[in-house]
Amino acid sequence: MVENRPFLTFLSHLVLILGLLVVFLPVYIALIASTRGPTEFLSGIVPLLPGDHTIANYRAMLQSGLSTSGAPPLFPMMMNSLIMALAIAIGKIVISIISAYAIVYFRFPFRALAFWAIFVTLMLPVEVRIIPTFEVVANLSMLNSYAGLTIPLIASATATFLFRQFFLTVPEELIEAARVDGAGPIKFFWDILLPLSRTNIAALFVILFIYGWNQYLWPLLITTDTRYYTVVMGIKRMAAYADAEPLWNLVMAAVMLAAIPPVIVIIFMQRLFIKGLVETEK
């Protein structure tokens, strides 16, 4: 800063700390609620200090869930979310990196057409083509399956553009040196381009993992079998139920469990996450 005014610095910290309190508030309250017993919500407002039902609540949710709400236990739902997040992240990265490779390192008829076809997917989020996409998946007998949960979501213009952009910055001479060194297209991709793309892949993985884990509308549409429920869509059923019955302690335990994995990924891979976020917007 240009001036050194301790009062201004103090004011800045004050604003930030108050702001952070507001940002943390909903999670703190949820966390507290998830440590309390079932009867403690009958009287007035949510308590502000932790209770002693933590282990019991979380164990109950992981193992049996809110069976009355028709949702399965949390643990299998979390596994489904994990499978979905990993499959989407890996699938998107794989098909995007190879299509970007084709677009940048080859010249062939209909190259521009292919590029535009991929580009158009940017303009067609699931939300605007719900019913026909559902019908396609239904016709392919992919309802209630992991394939149905993931494959329709793995086309990605953003990831393809990211890799294309990155490939364009790779020095021309590397492919020339590799060709002189006798490397063909597959070998060049595997030995040179893929290792060079490591950081980009990792950054993209963080973003896409969160994207996959947080999917809501799609699993809601194509799963009717509780064995394929994901945790984010599953808790909605419980929340609706909890509004009628005082089971908020259990619902909030479920909410925490649904939120924790992606939050951990972001906090521990913050640098990659920020890189991924900024790069995908280029």
């Binding site: 299509s99 084709a102 067609l124 605007v128 083509r129 026909p132 019908e135 494959i151 793995i154 086309a155």
Partner: peptide, 19 residues
């Protein structure tokens, strides 16, 4: 190399959008 991306795009994006 483009086939997987274009197949998913065609089947799950372009065709439903047209529908």
């Amino acid at each position: 190399l483009l086939l997987p991306q274009l197949a998913v795009t065609g089947i799950f994006f372009l065709w439903p959008a047209w529908q």
